[in-house]
C-alpha cells in the first residue's frame, strides 16, 4: 500500500493546484433523483397493469403526468448544469456514440416524446386521430415505454462507469443501484399518488416493493462501505469521507436512515398494523432520503485529488 509509505517518506505536496473539487454537484443529484422517480413511476404503472388493471382507472393520466414532469425536471437540471447550455443541440447533430451521455440523451428524449404522446392520447380521448380506443392504445404503448425505461434508468450508471477517474463507481453496482432507486422512489411515489384509488392489497404490494428495494440498496451500500476498500487504495481514500469524522459521514448516515432503514421499518409496521399513514410516511422518507444518498455518492469521489 503506497499510502503506508508516507510515514517513511513524510512526503508532502508543497506546490500543486488540482482542479477545484466538485464538478458534478447538486444539479446532477437532482438529475439522477428526478429520473429515478420518472422512470420508477412507469415501472410501477406497468406492474399495476399486469397485477390489477382495474385499479389503473383514474391513475393512467396522473401517473404519466407526474412521471413526465419529473423527466422534465431531470432534463432541465441536465441542461442547466452544462457550461454551454445553448449548445445542447450538438448532442443531436454531432453525436458520439461511445459516450453514455449521448446514448442517454437520445433515449431520454424518445422516452419523454412517447410519454407526451400517451398523455395526449388520454387527454384528447374522443378527439384523438390516432386511435379510437385510447386506453388500449395507452396500455400497448406502456409496454414499450416500460422497456425503454430500463436503459433510460441504467444509462447514468454507464456515465459513472465511463468516469474512469472515479474508482468508486463500478458499472455493476451502479446499475443495480439505479434500478433500485427507480423501484424505491417509483413505488413510494405510486403509494402517495394512488392514495385511496388503490386497494389496501395493492398499496401493500407497492409497500413490499419499497421495503425490498430499500433493503437491497442498503445491503449494497453497506457492502461497499465495509468491503469496498479491500481491493483499491483509491476507494479507501474516497470512503474515508463517509467514515469516522469524514466530511460526509453524517450526511451518508442521514441518507441511509431516511432512505432505507426507516422506510424498511415503517413498511414492516404498516403491514402488521395495516396502516396507510405509516406507508405514506415511509414513502415520503424514501423519496427525500434518496436525494441525500445520491448526492453523497456523487460527491465523495470528486474529493480525491487526481494529481
Amino acid at each position: 500500500m503506497i499510502h503506508e509509505s508516507i510515514a517513511a517518506t513524510q512526503a508532502v505536496v508543497t506546490l500543486d493546484v488540482p482542479l477545484p473539487d466538485i464538478f458534478w454537484g447538486w444539479f446532477v443529484t437532482m438529475n439522477m433523483w428526478a429520473k429515478s422517480i420518472g422512470t420508477g413511476l412507469v415501472f410501477m404503472l406497468f406492474l399495476l397493469m399486469k397485477k390489477n388493471p382495474d385499479e389503473m382507472k383514474g391513475l393512467r393520466t396522473p401517473t404519466l403526468i407526474v412521471s413526465f414532469i419529473m423527466m422534465n425536471v431531470f432534463l432541465l437540471f441536465t441542461l442547466a448544469d452544462l457550461h454551454q447550455p445553448f449548445r445542447m443541440w450538438h448532442i443531436f447533430f454531432y453525436p458520439h456514440w461511445t459516450s453514455a451521455i449521448t446514448v442517454g440523451a437520445w433515449m431520454a428524449t424518445v422516452f419523454v416524446g412517447l410519454e407526451s404522446l400517451m398523455i395526449v392520447v388520454m387527454l384528447r380521448k374522443d378527439k384523438c386521430l390516432l386511435t379510437k380506443n385510447s386506453t388500449g392504445f395507452f396500455d400497448k404503448l406502456l409496454f414499450w415505454v416500460t422497456l425503454l425505461a430500463i436503459p433510460v434508468t441504467l444509462y447514468t450508471a454507464g456515465i459513472m462507469a465511463e468516469a474512469t477517474a472515479r474508482e468508486l463507481w463500478q458499472m455493476s453496482t451502479e446499475s443495480v443501484q439505479m434500478i433500485l432507486a427507480a423501484t424505491l422512489s417509483g413505488s413510494a411515489a405510486m403509494i402517495l399518488l394512488g392514495g385511496s384509488k388503490l386497494s389496501d392489497k395493492t398499496r401493500q404490494f407497492f409497500g413490499a416493493i419499497l421495503g425490498l428495494s430499500a433493503l437491497m440498496a442498503f445491503i449494497i451500500y453497506m457492502s461497499e462501505y465495509i468491503f469496498g476498500g479491500m481491493k483499491s487504495e483509491e476507494v479507501i481514500a474516497i470512503l474515508s469521507n463517509i467514515k469516522g469524522d469524514g466530511d460526509y459521514a453524517t450526511m451518508f448516515w442521514i441518507g441511509q436512515w431516511v432512505a432505507y432503514i426507516l422506510p424498511m421499518l415503517l413498511v414492516a409496521l404498516a403491514r402488521v398494523s395495516n396502516s396507510s399513514n405509516l406507508l405514506n410516511l415511509a414513502s415520503m422518507l424514501a423519496i427525500v432520503g434518496l436525494w441525500v444518498i445520491k448526492h453523497v455518492w456523487l460527491v465523495i469521489p470528486q474529493l480525491l485529488s487526481l494529481s
Partner: peptide
C-alpha cells in the same frame, strides 16, 4: 507519479490562497 503517495497538509503549500475564477454550471 502517485497522488496517494504524498499528503496535502493545510498551510504547507507555497501558494496558500488560490483564487479560482468563477465558472458556469454548479459546483457544490
Amino acid at each position: 507519479l502517485n497522488p496517494l503517495a504524498s499528503e496535502r497538509v493545510e498551510g504547507f503549500s507555497l501558494f496558500n490562497k488560490i483564487t479560482h475564477l468563477p465558472l458556469g454550471g454548479h459546483h457544490e
